[in-house]
Design a protein around this nucleic acid. Structure first.
Lengths: 104, 104
DNA sequence: ATATCATATTGACTTTTTTAGATTTGAAGC
DNA sequence: GCTTCAAATCTAAAAAAGTCAATATGATAT
């Protein structure tokens, strides 16, 4: 059973790798076929597939199989959820503020 | 020389580890001394120090040395920059939209 | 200056992540 | 059916990240 922390970490792992950031940059200009990503990034097919799996499982990217091809695009829903999560993680918890900040 | 992608990846690495997320959760309730974090997380001192270094270098956490102690807190500036960066990474690039999405 | 305490750094080790060739799967066309 | 092509999975190896005891550093107190 994954903790909430592990679940959250998984989301941000999408943004922790240089190759995945380059993939997202390419997808910012619209939906792309895997073949285009492989060509533009100049990486092996298995490597792209590995990173796309991570991006899709984190919810940041959606895949749309169409015949032999798979098209990928940035997920509005996933992106917004990541924004909300990041905000939640870094926003002071007012109710708990002013609690003890050091021992003794 | 680090690429922009590497720089950006570094920011999100702050949120990619379960322990660091637990540290941030503790800091949401206000500034904390390292001693408190060690006690609450039940991890060795060197382990906390390792994670605090990553959090501080990513800009998400600020440290404030005070005599023998060091106090840590979430950085508003760093958090906001991470939000802006995440938004930029996942927002469609209107100018480049509708470009070629597959070969041939 | 010596002792003490808090944090940082080092080094050896383990675990996790990433890489890339080989193989498999699955859909389309013949 | 068989062939072709795209993508996913497998496998082993390399690289990166995390762990933790031991040591070093740096500030305070005596």
């Amino acid at each position: 059973m994954a903790t909430a922390y592990e679940e959250h970490a998984k989301v941000f792992k999408a943004f922790c790798d240089e190759k995945r950031l380059r993939i997202l940059e390419l997808l910012r200009s619209g939906e792309k076929c895997a073949c285009v990503l492989i060509e533009q990034l100049d990486i092996p097919q298995s490597s792209l597939s590995y990173h796309m799996k991570i991006l899709c499982e984190s919810g940041i990217v959606d895949s749309r199989p169409e015949g032999k091809w798979t098209h990928y695009k940035i997920s509005d829903k996933g992106s917004n959820e990541a924004m909300v999560l990041l905000k939640a993680i870094t926003t002071p918890n007012a109710a708990a503020e002013e609690s003890i900040s050091y021992k003794r």
